[in-house]
């Protein structure tokens, strides 16, 4: 069954002096429970596409539907995680993780408990009354993940969520996120420019070419890598082969 359907997306940004086409003719489908990556050099409109999928901007042309519902009519079915944690510094951790529920007026005791359990699973139990400035970068990004998951979104979008972290923290968080999403059976889209991260975490990789952003090629991650945790996948023998073929495609894109 098709879970997320992106059909014929064109998007052009208008300014006083120019009209820039960011995305051109993008069509793809994502199955339920699948983890896919959008990979590509900067300027290929990955973040624009995420904003369109999240229903934050309406595309110039084309439609996006989640379970046959157009996304701009949905509320709180799609979770969005940004490059930095963007925790609200004046809110405690508790207030931060319950923010989504509060905004959508769906804060019940049961859902509050669910959010606290998630925080506990992320190894951050007991931090509820602290403020974001008292936490390290990795901890803050985990809190941001809890905040996104607390509203129980059907689709999770990760916009380079690990890019602002140091390498070690990044590897650890990749494992944690991958494990958490598998446990809850969430469908996820990861935007990244890190080939390794895309291979290690996803089931399928969509490679984009820039100016205007187009879908260049789709890679299927081999079965034996899909079931491994990201850290182990990076050490598997099938990993360098896929890395090489994606690397070559990226070179092709740049040569054009």
């Amino acid at each position: 069954m098709v879970f997320l359907k992106i059909d014929g997306i064109h998007h052009t940004y208008f300014t006083k002096n120019s009209a820039t086409t960011a995305l051109s003719d993008i069509s793809l489908e994502v199955r339920e429970g699948e983890f896919v990556s959008f990979l590509g050099p900067s300027g290929c409109g990955k973040t624009t596409l995420l904003s369109i999928i999240a229903g934050l901007i309406r595309p110039t042309e084309g439609t996006v539907s989640l379970e046959n519902q157009p996304v701009h009519k949905l509320n709180n079915q799609i979770g969005y995680m940004l490059q930095q944690d963007y925790l609200f510094p004046w809110k405690s951790i508790k207030e931060n993780i319950l923010l989504g529920l509060k905004i959508s007026n769906s804060l019940t005791e049961e859902k509050e408990q669910y959010a606290f359990n998630l925080l506990e699973q992320m190894g951050l139990g007991g931090f509820e009354t602290q403020y974001p400035s008292q936490l390290s970068g990795g901890m803050r990004q985990r809190v941001a993940l809890v905040r996104t998951l607390a509203t129980e979104p059907k689709l999770l979008m990760l916009d380079e969520p690990f890019s602002a972290l140091d390498f070690q923290t990044k590897l650890k968080l990749e494992d944690l996120v991958s494990d958490t999403l598998k446990t809850f059976g969430k469908t996820a889209i990861l935007v990244t420019h890190d080939i390794g991260e895309a291979i290690a975490m996803s089931d399928r990789i969509f490679l984009f070419s820039p100016r205007p952003g187009r879908l260049h090629k789709t890679f299927e991650v081999p079965e034996q890598l899909k079931n491994l945790a990201p850290f182990q996948a990076r050490n598997h023998e099938a990993y360098p082969e896929l890395f090489q073929s994606i690397w070559k495609e990226l070179e092709n894109i740049e040569a054009k």
Binding site: N75, I78, Y80, L82, Y86, F88, W90, I103
Partner: peptide, 29 residues
């Protein structure tokens, strides 16, 4: 105010009043 804070709130479906109350006003305090 950093537009990304507003983006976070918008993904939760915040109204303009909620954007003001949760991000704009406290950030300008």
């Amino acid at each position: 105010v950093d537009p990304n804070y507003l983006k976070v709130l918008k993904t939760f479906g915040a109204t303009r009043y909620q954007l003001f109350k949760e991000a704009i006003l406290p950030a300008s305090f």
